[in-house]
Amino acid sequence: MVKPTRVTNRIRAVREGAGLTQAELARRIGVTRQTLIAIEQSKYSPTLELAFQLSRVFGLGIDELFQYPEADSE
């Protein structure tokens, strides 16, 4: 069944800080704007490849962009 992803991220804040629009960032990582919106809203967990592409656009590590809850908080 469809359930919200537990992976959260701060892509929106970082993107806005970098002065990039959703359309520009989506074009740079080769996805549709709707997919970027879904990722920003944590409605879709990007593939590892996309996560790397995003982290490289911003020059950050993956764990600086994405968060996943600790095991003991599950």
Binding site: V31, T35, E49
Partner: peptide
């Protein structure tokens, strides 16, 4: 006009689902 016929990984994942 932007990305009118474009598909990506999320589309493929959703199609599989």
């Amino acid at each position: 006009p932007d990305g009118v016929g474009q598909s990506d990984q999320r589309d493929r994942d959703i199609a599989r689902f």
